[in-house]
């Protein structure tokens, strides 16, 4: 088997805060193969966005990477290569689609300029060639009358159109990997489906890999082939999408799946209430000892408080961080 496109190992990012050291990302490892779509799921504050930003070495100021962290992409160590080489990767080989198309676009530059800029920065194409390419890309992401739209400013476009511009900006140079950080969260439901459909279509045509960051399991089910579930800065479960949905093992994953409303549920005559996971994510300055989920876990016993579970393999592609793997009889039904 060839080496994966992206290989992340023991990624740790911490922040010094007034309340102590916040270990926002704490030992995350995973790989993404060429052309593959991997989803990272978790509640806000679990470290998924920071993980994504770290891949492009875009850690917010104050964030500290642990020396053991490795992010290897196309054979280069993203965390240690010189700025110059890093810039050559950003936007060209690895691109990012941000969550808020409203604020992630520069309000005083035309959308065409903002797409063309990527071309201009990374290639030797002339201004007019870059513009032509930008217009073509805007048309490709489904913006009607792209030539005229390219000369407009972000505030003149709708939210869905803006997100299409973001996608055009990320994909104009056909990168090998696209990180999509909550690409549909800020959009109306009807627009969400369109954007997902567009991403799927472009993924097939360009053959790129996608790292999809989301809190929405529905989006993951539609897009990803493999899923990482993150909780409190750690990966707690990793599995192919089918087995994750069919047989989740970690109680947190179970909770997430149970918290998704479904039409089947709604149509039942016995109105079963939508389940929620009690409690909230603990602050990153004070992760609980042992298992970080134990305070919210219905199965937790003494061992969970003293002994931090390791990520163990249960099936060839299925890994879980839970003591229930060794002691399944502790599971309460």
């Amino acid at each position: 088997m060839t080496s994966p496109l992206l290989s992340v190992s023991d990624l740790r990012v911490s922040f010094q805060t007034d309340a102590g050291v916040a270990r926002a990302v704490d030992g995350v490892s995973f790989t993404v193969s060429a052309g593959e779509t991997v989803g990272i799921v978790g509640e806000s504050g679990c470290g998924k966005t920071l993980t994504a930003l770290s891949l492009l070495r875009l850690i917010p100021s104050g964030g500290k990477l642990a020396p053991s962290s490795r992010v290897e992409f196309e054979g280069a160590d993203m965390l240690s290569i010189p700025e110059r080489e890093l810039r050559a990767v950003r936007g060209r080989r690895m691109a990012m689609i941000f969550q808020e198309p409203m604020t992630a676009l520069n309000p005083v530059l035309t959308v065409g300029d903002q797409v063309a800029e990527v071309v201009r920065v990374h290639t030797k194409r002339s201004r007019s060639e870059a513009w032509a390419l930008a217009v073509a890309m805007l048309a490709r992401v489904g913006i009607p009358d792209a030539a005229a739209r390219a000369a407009q400013y972000p505030h003149e476009l709708s939210g869905g159109m803006r997100q299409r511009v973001m996608i055009a900006m990320a994909l104009v140079l056909e990168p090998a990997l696209v990180i999509a950080d909550e690409p549909t969260t800020a959009l109306d439901v009807t627009i969400q489906a369109q954007i997902l459909e567009l991403l799927r279509e472009l993924r097939e045509r360009i053959g790129m890999a996608v790292l999809l960051i989301t809190h929405d399991l529905g989006v993951v089910a539609e897009m990803a082939s493999r899923v990482l579930v993150m909780y409190a800065g750690e990966v707690v479960e990793e599995a192919p999408v089918e087995s994750l949905f069919a047989q989740p093992i970690h109680p947190y994953t179970e909770g997430l799946l149970a918290a998704v409303p479904s039409l089947a549920l709604a149509s039942q005559t016995t109105q079963e209430r939508l389940r929620t996971i009690p409690g909230t994510v603990p602050p990153p300055t004070a992760w609980p000892s042992g298992c970080r989920f134990r305070d919210r876990c219905e199965h937790a016993w003494e061992r969970c408080a003293t002994d931090a579970p390791a990520l163990v393999q249960v099936q060839p592609a299925h890994r879980v961080r839970c003591h229930l793997v060794q002691e399944p009889e502790r599971r309460r039904t």
Binding site: L58, R90, M96
Partner: peptide, 8 residues
């Protein structure tokens, strides 16, 4: 951040 992610 977008600008930085573009490789500027």
């Amino acid at each position: 951040q977008t600008a930085r992610a573009k490789g500027l």
